[in-house]
C-alpha cells in the first residue's frame, strides 16, 4: 500500500479533572503519515501544542505494543477505534484519509471518573481484583510443567481468559457500563486451573459484590464488550462467571467469607 500524508481535524475531549465538566476542543494536525500509530499522531499534536505554549492533551499509554492495556481512547464511537481485536496504540493512521474529522473521547462510565482529558481512573478494576482475583497459596518455584496434569482444552480456555489486559474497553463499549467481561475473564482463568480451586467458592461472589459496589452497570448480554475487546475475550466467560456465582451462592462459604 502506498504511504501518504494527511491533514486531519480532531475533536478531542478536554477536562481539567473529575470535579469539573469537560468540553470538546477542535485541533488541526497536518502532515500525518499513514504509517504512524494513532498515539504517535497524538504525540505530534502535543508537540504542536507545547510549541504554541498550550496545555498538551493528557492520554494514557505505556507499552505501545498492544499488550499492556493502558491506552484507552474512544474513537469515533468505538473503544480502541474501528479495528477489531486491537488497541488504540496499534491503530494506524492508514485507517484515515486526508480531511477526516476524528472525535476522541475518554472511556465514559461513572465507575471510571475522568482524571484529566482522555485519562480515566480505572482503579475500580484493581479493587475488584483485590476482592478475590488472586490465589493465596504460596506456589513456590515453578514446578515441572507436567507435574500437574491439566486437560488441554481447560488450559487453553484459562489462557484465553488470562489474555485480558484490563484496559476497560468492555466497560467503555457496554451500553450499561458493565464490567462483567473483565470480571468473568479474571474469575475464569482461575476457576479453570487447580491453583484457583481452594478459593473458588468465595471468589466469584466477592468479585461480583465489589463490581456492584464500584457502580458498574449490570450485564444484559448485549455483547458489545466481546465485539470491542482487544484480546477477544469471549462471552462464554460471562456464562462461566454466572455458573461460578450461583455455585458460590449455593455453598455457604460465600456468606461465611463476607462475615469474616
Amino acid at each position: 500500500m502506498q504511504h501518504y500524508n494527511m491533514n486531519l481535524n480532531l475533536k478531542v475531549w478536554r477536562q481539567k479533572n473529575s470535579k469539573t465538566s469537560g468540553a470538546f476542543e477542535t485541533f488541526k494536525v497536518s502532515n500525518i503519515s499513514s504509517e504512524m500509530s494513532f498515539l504517535e499522531m497524538f504525540d505530534v499534536l502535543n508537540e504542536q501544542l507545547v510549541a504554541e505554549g498550550k496545555e498538551p492533551v493528557a492520554f494514557d499509554h505505556d507499552c505501545r505494543e498492544g499488550i499492556c492495556g493502558m491506552c484507552s481512547m474512544h474513537i469515533n464511537g468505538r473503544a480502541h477505534g474501528p479495528w477489531s481485536k486491537n488497541t488504540t496504540c496499534q491503530l494506524h493512521m492508514r485507517e484515515y484519509k486526508d480531511g477526516d474529522t476524528i472525535v476522541v473521547e475518554p472511556w465514559r462510565a461513572d465507575a471510571f471518573p475522568v482524571i484529566k482529558d482522555l485519562v480515566v481512573d480505572r482503579s475500580s478494576f484493581d479493587r475488584i481484583i483485590q476482592a478475590g482475583g488472586y490465589i493465596s497459596v504460596n506456589t513456590g518455584n515453578a514446578q515441572d510443567a507436567n507435574a500437574l496434569p491439566i486437560e488441554k482444552q481447560q488450559a487453553d480456555d484459562a489462557f484465553a481468559a488470562a489474555a485480558c489486559i484490563g484496559c476497560g474497553a468492555c466497560v467503555a463499549a457496554c451500553p450499561n457500563a458493565s464490567a462483567m467481561l473483565f470480571v468473568s475473564a479474571k474469575v475464569s482463568h482461575l476457576a479453570l486451573l487447580p491453583q484457583g480451586d481452594p478459593e473458588r467458592k468465595t471468589r466469584a461472589f466477592n468479585m461480583v459484590n465489589q463490581m456492584d459496589a464500584e457502580g458498574f452497570g449490570s450485564c444484559t448480554n448485549i455483547g458489545a464488550c466481546e465485539a470491542e475487546c482487544p484480546k477477544g475475550i469471549s462471552l462464554e466467560n460471562i456464562a462461566r462467571l454466572n455458573r461460578e456465582y450461583v455455585g458460590s451462592m449455593l455453598s455457604g462459604s460465600a456468606v461465611e467469607g463476607l462475615q469474616q
Partner: peptide, 23 residues
C-alpha cells in the same frame, strides 16, 4: 439503573456496529 451508570453520555456511539439494535 443501567442507564444511570454513564452520566456523561458519548458524543458518538457505536450503535449497531458492535451490537444488534434489539439487544
Amino acid at each position: 439503573k443501567n442507564r444511570s451508570r454513564r452520566s456523561q453520555k458519548y458524543a458518538v456511539s457505536a450503535g449497531s456496529a458492535t451490537s444488534p439494535w434489539y439487544s
